[in-house]
Each structure stands twice: as structure tokens, then as C-alpha cells.
């Protein structure tokens, strides 16, 4: 499977990353290298092996359903660029 320069641009767009032509070329070369590696791994016979969703073969630990976090709004909002009436303000977005 090979990666086109357009694929790279599309992925960048989806990730909201502005890339110059030069950066796209560099990323293309790097990503193609990774794809090459994946191709190599695909050659290994994995039939009968259950795919893993995580690098470690352990399971999720669960929390009891208890409220442990209080109101720390004031502290959190100190680092926000703009707040009003307890809300975080961001550039207008309407879909």
C-alpha cells in the first residue's frame, strides 16, 4: 500500500494542520517509511492470533461511581484566554 501526497494533505487537513508543500513532502517521505515498516510486518504469518487493541495484555481497571472532584472553576479559568459568566469564550462557531 502506497501513500500519495494527496493522502498526506488530506490527513493534515483532517487534523487541522497547516502544511507547506515542503512539509507535505517531508511528511510523505516519513509516513511512507512507516508504511514500509507496516508492509514488512504484514508479511509475518499471524493467522490464529487474536488482534490486540493495546500494547499491553492487561484489562481496564474501574472506578467506583463516586464524585471526587469539586468545583475548581476559578483555578482552571485563570489560564483561559477569555471567560465570561463562567463560560470559556472561543471564536464564534456555528455549524
Amino acid at each position: 500500500m502506497s501513500l500519495s501526497i494527496d493522502d498526506v494533505k488530506k490527513v493534515a487537513q483532517l487534523a487541522r494542520l497547516a502544511v507547506t508543500e515542503q512539509e507535505a513532502q517531508t511528511a510523505h517521505a516519513q509516513l511512507s517509511g512507516i508504511f514500509g515498516l507496516i508492509e514488512e510486518m504484514r508479511a509475518v504469518d499471524t493467522s490464529g492470533i487474536e488482534p490486540m487493541s493495546h500494547a499491553q495484555d492487561v484489562v481496564q481497571r474501574l472506578r467506583e461511581d463516586k464524585v471526587t472532584e469539586g468545583n475548581q472553576r476559578e483555578m482552571f479559568q485563570q489560564i483561559a484566554p477569555q471567560v465570561e459568566s463562567g463560560l470559556y469564550l472561543v471564536p464564534k462557531v456555528i455549524e
Binding site: R63, V67, T68, E69, R73, F76, G86
Partner: peptide, 27 residues
């Protein structure tokens, strides 16, 4: 109908003042 959020211990009660139940994970 849990009392806390799915991935953190912040409250899920309805109608609270804005962002008073938004902990570090929610943010």
C-alpha cells in the same frame, strides 16, 4: 444515571453553574 462522569470523578448533576462540574479530565 451515574453520579459521576464516565471517565472522571466530576459530578453529572443537571443545572449547575457553567463549568463548575468541569474537572481537569472534562477540560
Amino acid at each position: 444515571s451515574t453520579s459521576s462522569k464516565i471517565f472522571s470523578g466530576a459530578s453529572t448533576a443537571f443545572g449547575a453553574e457553567p463549568n463548575t462540574q468541569a474537572d481537569a479530565v472534562s477540560l
